[in-house]
């Protein structure tokens, strides 16, 4: 049975599963405007508070908008339905709803992609920002020093002996030392 076929059936007030499923379909945008209009027209008085609470609670949970109390929401929706003319927006509701949802999904996707990109950028370039923001300014106008290459090589070699060996492990042609102590 199509939704429209059901919506066009005589008024039902038994609150059966088909009736609940139809409301759910309305929330999910699975009814076109004519079906939704018909459903609202026929079941407006039957949409009881608990039913609205249930579906709106699920929607609110997914939207993470817990500030609205379910009962208030139900009252607000009931009031809205009571006073709202049964003329929907000129554009097909299904298309609007779907487009809105797709836009929302796309936005979330973009946010997710940006988050991924930021995450990867942070991994690739971990402290560029830190250096830019917190690098202590040197008060010196430092110039290039002229150090004897032999002295320089000796200092570097002596330093590497204690440093984390992310340097050349063995050979360095700039060093002057050779080491092969024998008895």
């Amino acid at each position: 049975m199509s939704h429209l076929a059901y919506a066009n059936k005589p008024h039902q007030t038994d609150g059966g599963h088909d009736y609940i499923a139809l409301i759910s379909a309305g929330f999910d945008g699975e009814l076109d405007d004519q079906e939704l209009l018909t459903m609202l027209d026929r079941h407006q008085s039957d949409i009881n508070a608990s039913c609205w609470q249930t579906w709106q609670l699920i929607g609110d949970t997914l939207r993470q908008s817990p500030s609205t109390h379910p009962s208030q929401l139900a009252q607000r929706v009931a009031e809205q339905l009571k006073h709202e003319p049964t003329v929907l927006a000129p554009k097909p509701l299904r298309a609007m709803h779907t487009r809105h949802m797709m836009s929302l999904a796309a936005s979330v996707s973009v946010v997710a992609l940006v988050s991924w990109s930021a995450l990867h950028l942070a991994l690739i370039s971990p402290h560029t920002t830190q250096l830019a923001s917190s690098a202590p300014a040197s008060s010196h106008a430092i110039q290039i020093a002229q150090i004897d290459p032999a002295r320089l090589a000796s200092f570097v070699a002596a330093h590497r002996d204690f440093a984390l060996s992310a340097d050349s492990p063995d050979t360095d042609t700039s060093t002057q030392n050779t080491a092969e102590p024998t008895q």
């Binding site: 070699a157 002996d161 063995d170 050979t171 360095d172 060093t175 030392n177 080491a179």
Partner: peptide, 13 residues
Amino acid sequence: PSGDIEHRPHHSF
């Protein structure tokens, strides 16, 4: 060796 080898008495491998 033709090249030079660094002195590293505390060399960690």
